[in-house]
């Protein structure tokens, strides 16, 4: 069954897109980006196998 043949697929896609945008916005409001930045600008010893 090809789920793209249903109009509901478009609704699912756009509903998900809106939800995703809200999630990103909420994450930014909670300052999660600062945690991401903090981890990304320091050498991650765990990532390179030293930590």
């Amino acid at each position: 069954m090809n789920i793209f043949n249903k109009k509901s697929t478009y609704i699912i896609r756009f509903t998900l897109l809106v939800l995703i945008l809200f999630m990103i916005g909420y994450g930014i409001m909670r300052s999660e980006v600062l945690i991401v930045l903090q981890n990304a600008i320091n050498i991650c010893l765990d990532c390179i196998g030293i930590g």
């Binding site: 809200f22 999630m23 909420y26 994450g27 999660e32 945690i35 991401v36 981890n39």
Partner: peptide
């Protein structure tokens, strides 16, 4: 890395921002 980093921090258990970006 970021998906693990946010729950690893003391502040949050779930990252709306990272999950949202990956989902986007």
């Amino acid at each position: 890395g970021s998906l693990q980093a946010v729950p690893n921090s003391a502040q949050f258990n779930f990252s709306y921002y990272v999950v949202g970006l990956i989902a986007l």
